[in-house]
Design a binder for these strands. Sequence first.
DNA 1: TAGCAGTCAATATC
DNA 2: GATATTGACTGCTA
Length: 920
Amino acid sequence: MYSLQCCSSSETHNSSSNGYLLFSFFKQIMLAFVSLTCPPPSLIAPNSPVGVRGSRVKEQLSQYSISQRLFGESVLGLSQGSVSDLLARPKPWHMLTQKGREPFIRMKIFLEDENAVHKLVASQYKIAPEKLMRTGGYSGSSQSALKNTVAKMMTPTSMPATSPAMSVGGNSTGGMDLSPNSLAHSAMALHGLRGPASALASLTHGTGMDLNSSLSGRTSPIPTGLTYGATLAHFMSAQSSLNQRNLASHMAQQHQHQQQLHQSPVLVKSEKNSGSASVSKSLSGTQLGGHNNNTTSNGMTPSPMDDNSTPSAGHGLSGSGIPTLAYSLPAHSVYELAALTQELDTQGMTTKIKEVLLANNIGQKIFGEAVLGLSQGSVSELLSKPKPWHMLSIKGREPFIRMQLWLSDPRSIEHIQRLKTERREAGKRRRDLGFPMSAADTAGPNSNASSNTNSFMGGDNSSNDGSMGGSPSPYSGNASHHQATSLTTGAGASLSSSSPSPAKKQRILFSDQQKEALKLAFSLDPYPSTSVMEFLGQELNLSTRTITNWFHNHRMRLKQQQSNAVDCPAKEEISSSASPAAMANGGRESSGQIDPMHFRLLFHQRLFEMQVAAGEDASGHHAATGGSGSGGHHPGAGAGGINLPASLAGLPPQLAGNLNMMASLGMPYPFYATGMLSQFCMGLGNPSPDMAPGAEGLDLTLARQRVAALAQSDSEAEESDCESDTSSRTGPTTTHRRDGRAPAKMASPLMTAMASAKTTGGNHLSMSSQEEPAAQAARSSRRSRKPAAPQWVNPHWQQNSATRERDRLESEDGRDSSEERDKKKAKLLSSRFHHSVDANLNNFVETDAKTAGGRSSAEDDKYDNDEDEDDEEDEPASNKFNHRHVSPSRRSSPSPSPSSDEDKMDDESEAKDDDNNEHS
DNA sequence: TAGCAGTCAATATC
DNA sequence: GATATTGACTGCTA
C-alpha cells in the first residue's frame, strides 16, 4: 500500500529525526484521510486502505499537532471549518465535484512532498500560511545544505539582516523554500545568523557530523558566531541523540568546555570585536527586537518582521560588553529545536539548572528575565514542576531549549553575574540620584544594565510601557497580554517612573471555605456547566468568571501534578489511566450534575470536618470558642481554627455534630445525599418523595423553604454567636492578609448565598433528572472533546492503553442509543460521584453505590472494577472519620477520577494548613 | 464557545 | 530577598 511504502520510506529518516517521525506519521494520516475519500488510482496509489474511520483520522491529526486551521489554510486553501467537515464527513470520490476534489488533489501534492509536514510545523510558528501555498521547488539536499550551513556557521561573517536572501518565503528561484533547512536558515538569516538550525536539521538527517568533537579541542579564541554555532551544535548533537543519557554527557562536556572557555578573556574581546559585530549585533538586535513591543504571546516569539525591525536598538553587547548568547536564539530557531527534539529530560534539566543557579547565586528572577524571557513565577514553576517533554507544546518547550542552550553556553554564568552586578549598580545609582526605587529598578534599571538585560534575551528597550508596577521583566512584553510590562526605554528613561502607574491589581484570595467549596465542587464535577458555575458563583459570592478560572487552573494544575507523577516509569500504570490525556478527556466524564443540596450538604460536612480536625489540632493551644478573628490563622468560630460557614456555625453544635454522628452510626449514604440529612438537621419534616435514594435531581422547592429557615437561622446566628467574629465569616483570608486588604468577597459563606439562591432559583441546577436528553447529549458531546490547544505529543504516550480503552468505550457509546448512553452515563456519574465524594470527604461516608441507586446492573465492568478496587481500599468508617489521608495505593490507583488527585492536592493543602497552624 | 497551554504578577511563604 | 503559589488573562484549537 502506498501508505505503507510511505511509512517505510520515511522511516529511513525517522531513526534520526523525530521531525521526520512526525512527518511519517502525518503522512500516514493524510494518506488515510485521502484514501477515505476513495480517490482514483491516479491520485493515490492502488490498494489504498479504505474504510479508515474518520474519527481516527481526526484523532491522528490532533495527535500530531497539525491544526486543521493551519493545514486548511496553508495547504488546502480552506478554512478550518471546511477541513473539519472534510475530516468528519468525507464524501466518496465519485460524489465530489471538480471543486470538491481540489482539496484532495492539494493533499496529494502535499503528501508527495517529504518536507511538507516539517515545513508546515515550522511554519506554524512563523511563516505566513499563504506562503506555504506557493509552488516551487524545495531546497533540499541535506548533505549539501549541511556543508553549506556548517561552513557558513564557522565563518564569523553574516549576511546583512536585511538581505533579500533572508526574506522568508522567497528564494532565488522564486519559489518558496520551505525545507527545514531553508526555513531555519531564513529565520536565522533574519537575525544575521547562519546555519545552526539548518545544521540541526541536517544533523538530524543522520549525517553524523559531530560538531562537538570539532569544538572540543578548541583552545583558540572563538568568534561569537562560532560560539553560537558551536553551542547550538552542542545542543543539536545532544538533542539529536535519542538517548537522553547522551544529553547528560553532552551537558557534562559542555560544562567542562565551559570551564575551559571561562578562562579565556579573549572570547569577550572577540565578541566585542566588530568582526563578529554583524552577528552579534544582529543577535542582540534581533533578540531585542524579538522582545520589544512586537512580541507576541510571551515576548519570545518575534516575527521575522519584528526581528528585522530592530536590529540596532543601540543596546547590544557592543555597548555593554555583554556577549551574544547562544540561548538568545530567535524563537524561530528555538521552535525548530523544540520540534526536532524528540526527548528531553526536563526534570533533569531543571535540576541541573537549579544546581547551577544555586551554586552561582543566581536568582530565578534574573535568570528568567535574562535567559528565558519569563517572569520569576513562571521560572519557579518551570523549575519546580517541569512538565515532561512529551506534554509540552512547541512553545512550552521553548524555555527548556533556552535552558539547554544556556547550559551549553560557556559564558552563561558570567553573563548573568555581570548583569546582576550592573543592575545592582544601576539601582544604586538611581537611589543615589534620588529616584525612588521602583519595582522596575529591581528588575531592569534604566541604565546600561537595563540594556544589558535586554541584550541577553534580545528585548528591545523600546517601548511597552509597563506600568503594572512591579512587572520587572522587559521580556514579559507580551503586548497582547493583559499584564502590562514595565519596560524601560532605550534612552534610559523610565517609563514606569515617568508615567503614573495604576494601582496594583489586587488579586482575589479565596477564603478557606471558598477553596473547600470549590474543591468539593471540583470533585463532583471537574467540568461544571455554566449554570453550575453560576450557582457556585452565587453560593460563594464570586464571579462566574472567577469560578471558571479556578476550575480551569485547578484542572491544569492537577494535570501537571499528574504528569509529574506519571513521568516516573515505575508508574506506568498511572500514566495509562491518569495521564494528562485522561485528565483532559476521561476526566471530563464527570457527573456534570452538581446538585445544590448535595453540594451544600457535603460542603457543610466538609467544613465541619475541618472544624473538628482543626479543633483537635488546636485544642491544646487555643480556647475553643470565640475566635477573635484577629491575627490568628484560621480564626475559627468554633472549636478550631476552621471557620465554619454561617450556615453550619449557626446550627446548634449538636445538630452540626449529627452530620458526623450519622456517618459514624452507619447511616446510609443516600440519607445524606438526598436531602434527608438537611431535614434531619433542621427538623423540617420528612423528606419529599423526590428525594428518595437514587434521585439524581432534587426538588429544591422544599429545599428553598429550608434555605429560608437556614438563612433565618444563619441570620440569628450571626447576630448572636458570630457577631464578634465577623472576620472569621469573611474567611481566614482576612487574617492571612498582612496588609489587611479585603480578601475574596465571601461575606457569608454559602448560607448567605443560599438565602439569595432561593431568589435566584437554584433549581436550575437540578438538571440532572430534568434536563432534556438533547441537552444531556450536548453536554456529553462537549465532555468528549479533545484538548483544543496544540500539544506536541509523544505518540507512545498519547496512544496509551487508557486512551484506546476510552476510545473504545466512546465508540461503543457511539453505537448506543442516546437513551442507553444516558443511562450508562448516569451510572458512571453516579459511580464517580460517590467516588469523588468518598475521596473528598475522606471516606467519611460508606459508599454503597447500589443503595445510592446509581448502579444496579452489571454494566460497565470498567467502573465496577474501579469501584471494587476502591471498596477494597476503603477503610472502616470509624477509621475514616477525620482522616483524610489517602493511602499510597489509593493515590496510585489507576482510577482516573480526579478525586484522587484532588485528595492529593487536598492533602498537600492540608499539610500546608497544618503547617500554618503549627506556625501560628 | 469551551477548554487548553502558557504566562504574568500579586501574594504568600521560606 | 528568593522562591512558591495562584487568580487572571491571552491566544489558540476543535
